[in-house]
Design a protein around this nucleic acid. Sequence first.
DNA 1: GCGACAG
DNA 2: ATCTTGTCGC
Length: 253
Amino acid sequence: MTALPEDSVEKWKSEQASLKQKLVEGDTEEWQTAPGFKGLERVGGVDLSFIKGDDVNACSQLVVLSFPEMELMYEDSQMVTLSAPYVPGFLAFREVPCLLEALQRLERTQPNLLPQVVFVDGNGLFHYREFGVACHLGVLAGLPCVGVAKNLLQVQGVIRSEEHQSQIRALKKGGDSFPLKAASGRVLGEALRSSDSSTKPIYVSVGHRISLDTAVRLTHACCRFRVPEPIRQADMRSREYLRTHFPSADTCG
DNA sequence: GCGACAG
DNA sequence: ATCTTGTCGC
């Protein structure tokens, strides 16, 4: 008998509800409210890359960049075997275990290089139950985290309506943003035009131990291109790892 | 029944 | 997530 996703879903929901109680929404670090983020020196980024046709084996990537220069200070690529499938709303159960391990490896070997904040590919509070992958990793790692999604998750009444498209068109320059308000009126995240030359916004939300305003300003400060540099570097380097370690896998038998 | 569905 | 080179524009 194969365990159907629905079996895990109820357990997953209660685990999300349980961990959510430990979530801290506001700023907890001095650099977060200091002018120019003075005191912030290291920003992290995590991501996973896959080989086409294989959704079980992946390359888990952690990078640490200097702030504000965005120069590489640390890099870790690790092949992992994922135990959970991707289920919308439960991305964390698939990706967090290996990302947490990467952070723990760093803490054990080079604690001085631990990032002061981690950018996560995916949503934080902007989530069906207000506990996305960025919240999940943040709480378990005990580190400030920011969620950045490249695509809009339609949740709690936030939809890709004509009004939404209109708000996007109103974003004129890098740093411009508008709030993503749930039907309840609560602001769950922010759509951000990350640079002058980028039309399609990114969706920023609180992961853990940071305010939404700080998360948005920091994200903008880390953007050279559309995707914040820590996530972009993690993405590029994990793909590069797969290219060199599994050249043209799956073709020709 | 139909559409939506982060990565 | 992955499939994929060139090409148009600033």
